[in-house]
Amino acid sequence: MSTAPITAAAPDAGADPRAEGALLAATDVRKGFGLTQALDGASLEIGPGELVAVLGASGSGKSTLLHCLAGLIRPDAGTVSYRGQDLAGLSDSARSALRRADFGFVFQFGQLVPELSCLENTALPLRLNGMRRRPAEERAREWLDRLDVADLADKRPGELSGGQGQRAAIARALVTGPAVVFADEPTGALDSLNSERVMALLVTAARESGAAVLLVTHDMRVAAYADREVVVQDGRTREPGRGR
């Protein structure tokens, strides 16, 4: 079993995102929790720099699919591969290293550490990857600035509004220069105006940094920010317009 993290090659910005194979792919993935079959043969591919929306009703299995793709849970059957390598072949520590180096995460709630300032939260993934405090916080500050929350650097998460917290979370997700950002209902707890602002910032920042985004949502207006959509229904995937 390999324990080495997968080498992250820079994506070719000019190429068709999926021309040279998927960056990340789930193939015929199955996952059950007790008597519930959350995924029952789900497949999804995402190319470098692509923005894909995963749509589906509550309980359809879309978040479970995201967790499988991100290596947070192991599927019962089927494969998840990143840059051509099966994640099942990696040890837990190698998968953790991969998540820290190559993946970024934005969730609906509770992703910032309450005891840390906004700046420390944003710098945290870099610190966990071994970067020294000063350069880590300098880079974190640059990202907070790009997300228009530089003036909140010293605030704790409890002092931020929902929209401000999500901007800090996006800064934290992108600070390591990940190849893939997983965003699970990133605007689910926000009002319309903040939802629009957060999506515009997330999409612009991801496009500028070349990161692919896997966006789980049940909101079609949020899904419209993506390049294409994959629908999850009863644990299976289909891609409208692609005959799948």
């Binding site: 079609m220 419209a224 920010y225 409208p240």
Partner: peptide, 27 residues
Amino acid sequence: LETQRAEHLRHMRELTRRKLAGDLADQ
């Protein structure tokens, strides 16, 4: 229904791109 849904979503993507590039009036 599916054909209409795909067409609606295609148009929504187009409007979203225009919105991202536009000023407040466009938005």
